[in-house]
Design a protein around this nucleic acid. Structure first.
Length: 103
DNA sequence: CGTTTGACTGGCC
DNA sequence: TGGCCAGCCAAAC
């Protein structure tokens, strides 16, 4: 059962429940690739995907600025709608919202 | 097949 | 706390 590298990334992101977040580095470490690769996989997602890409943020607990510069705001809104609270600086408390992956 | 780019990260100041 | 730099890896050209 060998899935593509991207498929493994998407599979882990789907395991993140609403109201929780994960980081690029966390997923990358579980699969065995770098955070850059995870970010690249997120960028390759289609608008109507079933992957909760909004729950993937950077190690600083902030939403990474995208090349377009528009979806980043949407990501914060979607997370807030799930109950994730942002600090005044626009940061998320990873110790509270980071999803603990099994293994 | 070499170069460039990008939704990252850790270290340093 | 926040900005800058080098390292990393995969896709696009």
């Amino acid at each position: 059962m060998s899935s593509s590298l991207y498929q493994q990334i998407y599979d882990l992101v789907r395991q993140v429940p609403p109201g929780r977040v994960t980081t690029y580095g966390q997923i990358g470490r579980l699969i065995g690739c770098t955070a850059r690769t995870v970010g690249f996989a997120m960028a390759a997602l289609a608008p109507g995907t079933d992957v909760p890409w909004q729950r993937v943020i950077n190690s600083q607990g902030k939403v990474s600025p995208r090349r377009d510069g528009e979806g980043n705001l949407l990501q914060q809104v979607l997370l807030q709608a799930e109950g994730v609270q942002f600090s005044r600086s626009g940061k998320v408390d990873l110790q509270t919202y980071l999803h603990p992956f099994p293994g």
